[in-house]
């Protein structure tokens, strides 16, 4: 079941990216909107950046014990 869901998930990613390539962008304002599958790339990289950013902040001193202020 879980394996099947994973397959469906990855297939639908592929389909959405493929379909996305053939959809014209209405108004291109910035250069990166011309990159194929820009949203997918940005979603993946953005997610990694946010997780790593949060973890880095946590490790560099803002993550303390629960009773830190008591």
């Amino acid at each position: 079941m879980a394996r099947k869901l994973t397959y469906i998930f990855f297939i639908s990613i592929g389909v959405s990216i493929l379909v996305g390539l053939f959809i014209p962008h209405e108004h291109v304002h910035f250069w990166w909107e011309k990159i194929p599958a820009f949203d997918a790339i940005f979603g993946f990289l953005g997610c990694i950046v946010i997780v790593l950013g949060a973890k880095a902040l946590g490790h560099h001193g803002i993550q303390k014990d629960e009773d830190y202020y008591d």
Partner: peptide, 30 residues
């Protein structure tokens, strides 16, 4: 389609980085 791609790939990243977003008991300083 832009939003769908954005979320699906964020979902992939979540699966990869799941161990890193597990909640911990902690106080977060702000």
């Amino acid at each position: 389609f832009g939003v769908i791609q954005l979320f699906m790939l964020a979902g992939v990243a979540f699966i990869l980085a799941k161990a890193m977003v597990v909640p911990h008991r902690a106080t977060i300083l702000d």
